[in-house]
Write a protein that binds this DNA or RNA. Structure first.
Length: 495
RNA sequence: GCCCCCGUAGCUCAACUGGCUAGAGCAGUCGGUUUUUACCCGAAAGGUUGAGAGUUCAAGUCUCUCCGGGGGCACCA
C-alpha cells in the first residue's frame, strides 16, 4: 500500500480532515492560539488518583489540580459534558458545566475533537457512580489534533498500521504503552546490574572499516570525505576485547547491531545487543553471571522471575539447566555427534538430508536449531560447540574439536551466546585464515581477516569470558510477545 | 527466496452458491440532552471494496499480474 502524500490524503479523506482544519481556523478566529508554547505547573493524572481514589460516590473536595493530556472520549449532555483525559500516567474524567464555565467556554471545550491536547484546571470530586473526576474551572488548548484518532473502544488492531504508525498504536492501545515501558525498564535494570557489578559501559564504532565478531552479512555504506566504504557493525565483540587488552577488565556495550539478513518473528535487521566481557573469568563464570542478570532484570521489571509462554510457566530463577550440545542432540535424535566426527559420517547418521555445502560444524548447528531449540522452553545453557562455527572461542580444555562456548535458550529460542575468549593470537590468526577461506569459497557470512585485532591480541589479553545477549529477545520473553516486531517500536517494513 | 492466508468508510467489522443502489457500530457533521461512562435520542453525510487486467448478462465474491501485511519454511542472533 503506497503511503498517501499530503495532497492525495486531502483528497481521500477531505471531510474529516477538512472539518478539523475548519475548527482550527475558527479557534484562531476566536483569538485562541491552537499551539501555545507552554503550560506550567501541571501534575500527572496518577497524582490525582493517588490523592483521591478513596472518595465516596457524590463526595466533593476543594482540592484543585492542573492536569494536561489528550482527549480520549467525550460524552455530551447539552449544558454539561464528560471528557476522558489521558496522559502518560493514566486516565481521568473531566466534568465541564456551562453554569461553572459560562456557556461559551463550556461549549468550546465540549466541542473539541478527540485527540486534541488540553490543559485543565479543576476541582476533584466523585460522581454519583463514584468515578473520580475534575470539575473543570478553566482550560487551555495545548495542541489541536488535525487527524482523527483510532477507534476509542477497539483501539488500533491492524498490524500493519500498528507497526508503520506506532504513535497511533501507543495512543490507542494502553497495553502497547505498557510493553514499551517494560522494554525501557529492562534496559535500565540491565545497566543497573552491570554497573553494580563493576562493569564499565563504553561506546565503540557503529561505522567500521572492517566488520566482525559474528557470522553475518553486513550493511555497507560510504564516507564521502574519507572516500571509503564503511560497514555498519554486526557485533561489538572485537572492539570490546581491545578494551580488555587495554585493561578495562569488566566492560560492556549496549546498543544496536545491524545484519543484512531476512526478517522473521525473531529477526530484525537492526536489533539491540548487549555484550559484556570479563577478564580472569571463563564461560562457566559467564553463565552464572548471565542467569543472575536475567533473574535480576525479570524481578525488577515484572516483580517475579516467572513468565508465561504458550501456556507454559517458565522460571528464570537460577540455576539454569546446563547440558552439553552433544547430550542435547543425543536426547532428541539419538545421534551422538562426537561418534560421527566427520561430515560424511554425521550426514549418514542423520534422518534428514544434509546440505552438501555444510561442514561437520554446520550440520551439528542444524541439528541444534531444528531438532533441539524448539524444545528448550525452560532456561537452558547448551554448552561446548564445534570449533568450525566459533572463530573467536577458546578450544575446550578437555574435549577435542570443541570450544568453550554456550548458548542460552528460553521459550524455544536463543537469547544469548558466550564463550571463553580465544586469546592466543597465533591460533586466532589461523581461525581468521580458515574464515577467509570460507569467504573465498562464497560463504558471505564468514568472518573477514582482521589484522588489527590480531595485533591487539599480540599485546596480550588476559583469559576472558564474553557474552552477547539479545535485548529484543529478552524483552519478548519478559512481555510474552509473539514477535520481535511487537517489542521494536518501528520495525523494518517494506517501502 | 518458496508456500499458505489476508486487504471492504478515519477505526472495528458485515455482505449466502457470483445477483437489486456494498451494510452496521464507533468517530465526524447538524439538532436535542446539567453526574454520564462502549452515555442516550433524531437527521443527514461518508466507499475507485489495495492497484491493474480478464471471465461473465452481472464481480467485494471467480482467474491472472502487481503492491502491502500476517503466518510458516529456508538463513541468521
Amino acid at each position: 500500500m503506497a503511503e498517501p502524500q499530503d495532497g492525495a490524503d486531502e483528497r481521500s479523506e477531505p471531510q474529516l480532515l477538512g472539518e478539523r482544519r475548519e475548527k482550527l481556523e475558527r479557534l484562531r478566529g476566536a483569538g485562541i492560539e491552537p499551539f501555545p508554547a507552554e503550560f506550567a505547573g501541571r501534575v500527572e493524572i496518577a497524582a490525582v488518583h493517588a490523592a483521591h481514589d478513596g472518595l465516596e460516590a457524590g463526595e466533593e473536595t476543594e482540592d484543585a489540580y492542573r492536569v494536561a493530556g489528550r482527549i480520549a472520549a467525550r460524552r455530551g449532555h447539552g449544558k454539561a459534558a464528560f471528557i476522558d483525559l489521558v496522559d502518560a500516567s493514566g486516565r481521568l474524567q473531566l466534568h465541564s458545566r456551562a453554569d461553572v464555565l459560562g456557556a461559551e467556554v463550556h461549549e468550546r471545550l465540549a466541542g473539541l475533537d478527540l485527540g486534541d491536547i488540553v490543559g485543565v484546571d479543576g476541582v476533584a470530586f466523585a460522581t454519583r457512580r463514584g468515578e473520580l473526576s475534575l470539575q473543570v474551572t478553566g482550560w487551555t488548548l495545548l495542541a489541536k489534533s488535525l487527524r482523527p484518532p483510532p477507534d476509542k473502544f477497539h483501539g488500533l488492531e491492524d498490524t500493519e498500521l500498528r507497526y508503520r504508525h506506532r504513535e497511533l498504536d501507543l495512543i490507542a492501545n494502553p497495553e502497547s504503552r505498557e510493553l514499551f515501558r517494560k522494554r525501557g525498564a529492562t534496559i535500565a535494570a540491565t545497566r543497573e546490574w552491570l554497573d553494580a557489578e563493576g562493569f564499565v559501559e563504553v561506546e565503540t564504532p557503529v561505522l567500521q572499516p572492517l566488520y566482525g565478531g559474528a557470522l553475518a552479512r553486513p550493511f555497507t555504506t560510504h564516507h564521502n570525505a574519507l572516500d571509503r566504504d564503511l560497514y555498519l557493525r554486526i557485533a561489538t565483540e572485537l572492539y570490546l576485547k581491545r578494551c580488555v587488552v587495554g585493561g578495562i577488565d569488566r566492560v560492556y556495550e549496549l546498543g544496536k547491531d545491524f545484519r543484512n539478513e531476512g526478517v522473521s518473528y525473531k529477526h530484525n535487521p537492526e536489533f539491540t545487543m548487549l555484550e559484556w566481557y570479563e577478564a580472569y573469568a571463563d564461560y562457566s563464570d559467564a553463565a552464572r553471571r548471565h542467569e543472575n542478570l536475567v533473574a535480576h532484570v525479570a524481578e525488577r521489571v515484572l516483580g517475579t522471575t516467572t513468565v508465561e509462554r504458550g501456556g507454559v510457566e517458565i522460571d528464570l530463577a537460577p540455576p539454569w539447566r546446563r547440558v552439553t550440545l552433544r547430550d542435547a542432540i543425543r536426547e532428541r535424535t539419538g545421534v551422538d555427534v562426537l561418534e560421527h566426527p566427520t561430515r560424511e559420517a554425521l550426514a549418514a547418521a542423520m534422518d534428514s538430508e544434509a546440505s552438501p555445502d555444510d561442514g561437520w560444524g554446520k550440520l551439528v548447528d542444524g541439528l541444534l536449531s531444528k531438532e533441539v531449540e524448539p524444545h528448550l522452553i525452560q532456561p537452558t545453557f547448551v554448552i561446548d560447540y564445534p570449533v568450525e562455527t566459533s572463530p573467536f572461542a577458546k578450544r575446550h580444555r578437555s574435549e577435542d574439536g570443541l570450544v568453550e562456548r554456550w548458548e542460552a535458550y528460553v521459550g524455544g529460542f536463543e537469547i544469548s551466546n558466550a564463550y571463553s575468549e580465544l586469546n592466543d593470537p597465533d591460533e586466532q590468526r589461523r581461525r581468521f585464515a580458515e574464515q577467509a577461506e570460507e569467504l573465498r569459497r562464497g560463504d558471505d557470512e564468514a568472518q573477514p581477516f582482521d589484522q588489527t585485532y590480531i595485533e591487539a591480541l599480540e599485546y596480550g589479553m588476559p583469559p576472558t569470558a564474553g557474552v552477547g545477549l539479545g535485548i529484543d529477545r529478552l524483552v519478548m520473553l519478559l512481555t510474552g510477545a509473539a514477535s520481535l516486531r511487537e517489542v521494536v517500536l518501528f520495525p523494518a517494513m517494506r517501502e
